[in-house]
Simulated scan of single mutants.
Amino acid sequence: MKNELVVKSNQVIEASYRLSVVEQRVILSAIAKIPKMCEVSDDEIYTVSVQDLKALGIHEKTAYRDLKEAVNRLYDRSISLDMGNKLVKMRWVQRVEFTDNQSAVALRFSKDILPFISNLKANFTQYLLSEVSKMQGVYSVRIYELLIQYKEVGGRLISIDDLRIMLDLGTRYKTTGNLIAWVITPAIEEINELTELKVIAKPTKTGRKFTHISFTIKNKPTSKKDIVEKIERDPDTLDMFYKMTDSQINMFGNQLARLPELAHLAVGNESYDALASRIKDMLRDPIKQTQFIPYLRNLGFAQIK
């Protein structure tokens, strides 16, 4: 499992769905087995074994029972993807098989979902399966995926309404306080403890109402130099708003739109000019500007040191 890679379309990562911890482990284990960078037929069957689940933290005595129950539920699970001008609901799997020796199950991904988890050449996120193998929280993997997308950016701002939809919370955790206490905080604690990321989550207001969660995303320091830089760096950098002139917005907006690291911001087949126009609007917004600060620094925006 050490080098098994999970690759997902960003549309899947930001889609609306809910899976239990064991169901997520089964799906991720199967996705990690899909050959990378080649065409895959929906006839292919992927086997998830008891050993796979044990490596992902399932207790040996209950591994097959948990595996079988999870796959039975997965057969009825769906995922809703935003496809630009329409919302498309599709199934994760179209077929499941159980072995007589009770050591593994096999599943076949649905034809609809397969293009979003195989042979991806653009707008995708990847991470090692081992990074999430020990997570126990039902929302930890989902939030980790939403943040690892923006690892190179150094931060991400997600509206509370969008987060509720992505996590398929429905009427659960209606208040921002409950959302933070029961969903976000436990997930961030696991991410900080078990992965290479160091994340800080902070609710932000629009007017008098909390409307967004601002995530600061950093790599854990791995050397003395990294530790010193972490101590010296202003922890509130991502909460600052930099007033830019129209000419600066125009210049940096065009440059940001052409950065490969920000290709995931494009909607469908959106042109560079259209993406640049949207980014320029975001640079004028105190909340939305935060996600671009690390890139503005790299591009030489003088106000950001």
Score class of each variant (00 low, 15 high):
2 K>G: 15
4 E>C: 08
7 V>C: 01
7 V>T: 09
11 Q>R: 07
12 V>L: 01
15 A>F: 01
17 Y>I: 09
20 S>L: 00
21 V>L: 05
22 V>G: 09
24 Q>T: 07
25 R>C: 11
26 V>Q: 04
27 I>C: 03
32 A>M: 02
37 M>C: 12
37 M>G: 14
40 V>I: 05
44 E>I: 00
44 E>G: 01
46 Y>R: 00
47 T>K: 03
49 S>D: 11
52 D>E: 05
52 D>K: 00
54 K>G: 14
56 L>I: 04
57 G>L: 00
59 H>V: 08
60 E>L: 01
60 E>Q: 12
62 T>F: 10
62 T>W: 06
66 D>S: 15
69 E>G: 10
70 A>T: 02
71 V>Q: 02
73 R>F: 12
73 R>H: 14
74 L>S: 03
76 D>S: 15
81 L>K: 00
83 M>Y: 02
83 M>C: 05
85 N>T: 08
88 V>I: 10
90 M>N: 11
93 V>Y: 01
95 R>W: 07
97 E>N: 12
99 T>A: 10
102 Q>V: 06
103 S>G: 15
106 A>Y: 05
109 F>C: 00
110 S>T: 03
111 K>H: 12
112 D>S: 05
114 L>G: 06
115 P>Y: 04
115 P>N: 12
117 I>W: 04
117 I>E: 15
118 S>P: 04
119 N>I: 05
121 K>N: 15
121 K>E: 15
122 A>K: 03
123 N>T: 09
126 Q>N: 10
127 Y>W: 13
129 L>Y: 02
135 M>C: 08
140 S>K: 04
144 Y>K: 03
144 Y>T: 06
146 L>W: 02
148 I>L: 03
148 I>V: 12
148 I>K: 04
149 Q>F: 01
156 R>Q: 14
158 I>N: 04
160 I>E: 14
160 I>H: 05
161 D>N: 13
168 D>T: 13
168 D>W: 02
169 L>S: 12
170 G>L: 00
172 R>C: 14
173 Y>D: 15
174 K>H: 09
175 T>G: 11
176 T>I: 03
177 G>V: 05
177 G>R: 05
180 I>V: 08
182 W>R: 07
183 V>E: 07
185 T>N: 13
188 I>L: 13
189 E>D: 15
192 N>D: 14
193 E>G: 14
193 E>R: 14
194 L>W: 08
196 E>Q: 11
197 L>D: 12
206 T>K: 06
206 T>C: 07
208 R>E: 15
209 K>Y: 07
209 K>N: 13
212 H>L: 01
213 I>W: 02
217 I>E: 07
219 N>R: 04
220 K>E: 14
220 K>H: 09
221 P>A: 13
221 P>W: 03
222 T>F: 07
222 T>H: 11
226 D>T: 06
231 I>S: 13
236 D>M: 08
236 D>E: 15
237 T>D: 13
238 L>K: 04
239 D>V: 10
247 S>N: 05
248 Q>R: 08
248 Q>Y: 10
253 G>K: 01
254 N>K: 11
258 R>F: 11
259 L>Q: 12
259 L>M: 10
262 L>R: 04
267 V>Y: 04
271 S>Q: 02
271 S>F: 00
273 D>Y: 03
276 A>R: 00
278 R>N: 06
280 K>H: 03
281 D>I: 01
283 L>D: 08
287 I>D: 07
288 K>N: 12
289 Q>N: 10
291 Q>C: 06
292 F>H: 01
296 L>W: 07
299 L>V: 12
299 L>G: 13
302 A>H: 09
